[in-house]
Design a protein around this nucleic acid. Sequence first.
DNA 1: TTGAAAGCGCTAACAG
DNA 2: CTGTTAGCGCTTTCAA
Lengths: 327, 327
Amino acid sequence: MHDVAALAGVGLSTVSRVVNGDVKVSPAKTLAVENAIRELGYRRNDSARHLRTGAAASIGLLIESIADPFFSLISQAVEEVALSRDSLLLSASSHQDAARARRMVLAFCSRRVDGLIITPSEDQSIDYLRTELTAGVAMVFIDRPVPGLDVDTVLTDNVGGAMSGVEHLIAHGHRRIACITDRAGLYTSSHRIRGYRNALAAAGIPFDPALVYSADDTTDTLAGPLTSMLDAENPPTALFTANNRSTIGALRVMGGRHNRPALVGFDDFELADALSPGVTVVAQDPLAMGRMAAELLFRRLDRDTSPPQTITLGTRLITRGSGEQRP
Amino acid sequence: MHDVAALAGVGLSTVSRVVNGDVKVSPAKTLAVENAIRELGYRRNDSARHLRTGAAASIGLLIESIADPFFSLISQAVEEVALSRDSLLLSASSHQDAARARRMVLAFCSRRVDGLIITPSEDQSIDYLRTELTAGVAMVFIDRPVPGLDVDTVLTDNVGGAMSGVEHLIAHGHRRIACITDRAGLYTSSHRIRGYRNALAAAGIPFDPALVYSADDTTDTLAGPLTSMLDAENPPTALFTANNRSTIGALRVMGGRHNRPALVGFDDFELADALSPGVTVVAQDPLAMGRMAAELLFRRLDRDTSPPQTITLGTRLITRGSGEQRP
DNA sequence: TTGAAAGCGCTAACAG
DNA sequence: CTGTTAGCGCTTTCAA
């Protein structure tokens, strides 16, 4: 910048003004500066700019795993909003590791990002979040709330969505409906299980704990338990899989079986329509979730001080055949 | 930091030393500083640190689309390597938009990231990349090379992979094999088409242009052309789909048809094994690509000045049934 | 072992 | 309209 000013024969501030598109610069000097910039291959150092202005023009996104389509769609939506606001995206995956989540959030904060969008981990203290929050860092939670922290949050209607899926099965004559989830303690799983139970209760179907299976790592461990459930004396005639990975895991297990039970899965996935029968799902809208979270965040960065809000997005039942099979 | 120093009754440099784990600080002062830090909720400003030291501790990743599983796996691998090097990841998607790609790369450069991993756009000048390169920015290209720029690059063996897929079809008795791609001009597509032609030639099968279809946007436009190709007088008995999206598009189109042709797709995808028949694919290894690109980059950041290298990763034919169907 | 001071590249008063 | 100047928060000689 110093060199540019020297070459153009102007002061530092004139260079700064030209770079930032300030109008009050004479055309002659503007031109001289632009030429010098081109000549020297100058590019503004945003790090220094950030230090001076306090605006990082970047936000941090912490999700569970970028390899999960649900989260990569959220990520895409956040990126679009950030782009439209000339903000860059720092992103990280926690992989359900609370220590890692903490580390990444603190790293973002050290960078002084303008704000944070976080899928909170559930298995550890979130004191550090409270610290940052009181330090004035803008934050939006997505997919799960954090108990005790009153912060903007974007959620899916897990209970209602699960209910609609299970009701669909019940409407098609099923009364023995199994529920497959990953870790039952997780926010989304527990809410979807609640929706499942609500739907059963509303239909006067007794809850049978033997029909609920929760795993730590669905992909690896689902095969055994699910097989024995299906081979049991009084097997379920339908399955409600409470998340993406459970649905796909169940499809794998059932691939080799005849007499497959009906299936409704929570969360849509690619090729759900190309399987036969097509897989009926309770679809979330990850793009909308990401977009709303980002918009909420930028609204805060624009000094909106209204009370924190929680947005709950509805789900959509997409019927493709697998849930319509009668027992 | 100033406040911390005051509260602890030490100088600025002592605070700096404690924060950075410098050993030459007396235990008493170390303790005092640590307490002050905790009390004040101090956190080092990495932006200022960056300005002073010149090390951003972050890298930029530009891919085509984070919503594409191929790229999200690359992204995941890059993130892991970055994490292990205490580096943050700035990420952006170009969506095949050269102007957007340019904008994001320049934004990364303005942030003075330590290095860049880029899936280059093919449809516009890359002069700006040359500029940054000569300015000394470390760079690795992934998935496609940039003609005229001698830079570290990680590629898939597109020609060899496509050949192996088509050879598989030929080995199962097919002689009329269609090739479906997205834009034929793209680097990967053109190489895979070359592999397709090589395999035909090696088997003495004449090349029929009527059996090659290239689209701009596979998902939307594949249905019509593919249907008419399959309904033509002398239809193909097998399909080679040269990328992920073409494979999935073709599966959708063929879903409603009886007498489906055999199929081999380039690039693996989730549930390829759950369809019936399972979809035989030429699998790439996006995780390895991302890992190698990131390792290459960090090696450069560690001042490795050996000549730029191009790493070409082999493919793996995964047979699941769809390619083994005889005509 | 410690502190004072210079300065990374930039912006924003402020004075002209 | 333009240049000078004072920092933003940090690290790093350099002396003490």
